[in-house]
Design a binder for these strands. Structure first.
Lengths: 196, 196
DNA sequence: CGACGATACGGACCATCGGTCCGCTTGGCA
DNA sequence: TGCCAAGCGGACCGATGGTCCGTATCGTCG
């Protein structure tokens, strides 16, 4: 069961690749961030990148994982309203807004991550499952049927998808503050009241 | 201003390509439908495909256009509840359900269409704009502020995105009837009441 | 400390894909 | 019937994700 021990240089390189890729996404946006570019920026061979992350999707997921770790931590065990304990309505809205924030920073990364189809569909990533579970469980405390909470969670997450967010802020030039306001209003109107 | 007249063989070939591509998507799903494959299946050179449709996105959009023309027609000038005239709530729900139906048939096509990023983002296609306008205008009759209706329309459309639909029906094995029920319930709960 | 096997490196290499180019063919009009 | 613009097709191109394998390095054990 124990992991077979990783060599020191492998660990070091993995970190370097992660850093380089993060920088590339932060700087240029989504385009131009090819695996070749990442390897070069990290000062590492291409094979090294693929050994560390299996494929492009693996790299993107690891990257997103690292970037959103604090947020997940806050949701898992931080103080309300993000952490457990707040009334369901408030917590769901807080989580959605936090997620929106993550997509706004890291636009390039999340665009790349959600673009993939087939086996790499965003819906198949463990990360999506995690967020969906959090929302669903919280919503289940408000709605009668489980199926309802389940679909509602999907719908709410769909409203903060990276490409929609990018479209609204970049193409339509909707100010971020306004976007936040609309998302919040929408979420409030969607989430059923306390009385089920 | 007049279109420069198209040669007969060009028209014929265009149709052949459309048919071949449609068949490919209907049969195999999204994968394997490369431009090369389409050209070959149509019994036509690759250059011909690109002259007729400019690029891959053009082909996909033309394809989707053709497949959904009757639906658009029905929404534009058909009988209620899909056509104009029905109460906003019912019409919006009807349109969403119709859209869901279109994504369920033609899964491969819509998956391919929504996968694209960058300049070919689904949100930049005229088709999306059209559906969004329809929903927004209808919703605007119910909500106070325009911005609210606008975002709500986006959110509702996001709930029937091809990859989400595929995830629910294929991965989660959610029966189509159940999906329809949940979508309808969700839409009803989201759309503000008449007095809104 | 030396040596040996497992692990990792790197970049040449490969297959595939969307898209372009251009010499040849064909349709349509006078 | 002859001319020429419109169209054809498939070889070709550049980029990309992913693989392969000879070589270098790590870490351990005697």
């Amino acid at each position: 069961m124990s992991e077979p021990r990783r060599r020191a240089d492998a660990v070091r390189n993995r970190e370097a690749v992660l850093d380089a890729a993060e920088a590339l996404f932060a700087r240029g946006g989504a385009d131009g961030v090819s695996m070749n570019a990442v390897a070069e920026a990290a000062g590492v061979g291409k094979g090294t990148v693929f050994r560390a992350f299996t494929d492009r999707t693996g790299l993107l997921q690891a990257l997103a994982e690292r970037r959103s770790a604090p947020l997940r931590q806050a949701v898992e065990s931080g103080p309300p309203p993000l952490g457990p304990g707040a009334p369901p309505r408030e917590r769901v809205v807080a989580v959605l807004n936090a997620l929106l924030g993550a997509k706004l920073d890291n636009q390039g990364l999340y665009l790349a991550l959600e673009e993939a189809g087939g086996a790499a569909s965003p819906y198949r990533s463990p990360s999506y499952g995690w967020w969906h579970t959090v929302l669903r469980d919280e919503l289940a405390r408000l709605t009668g049927t489980a199926g309802r909470a389940d679909f509602l969670a999907h719908a709410l997450l769909a409203a903060v998808r990276a490409d929609l967010v990018a479209h609204l802020t970049v193409d339509e030039r909707l100010p971020v503050a306004e976007l936040r306001r609309r998302l919040t209003a929408y979420a409030h109107s969607v989430i059923p009241p306390e009385g089920g």
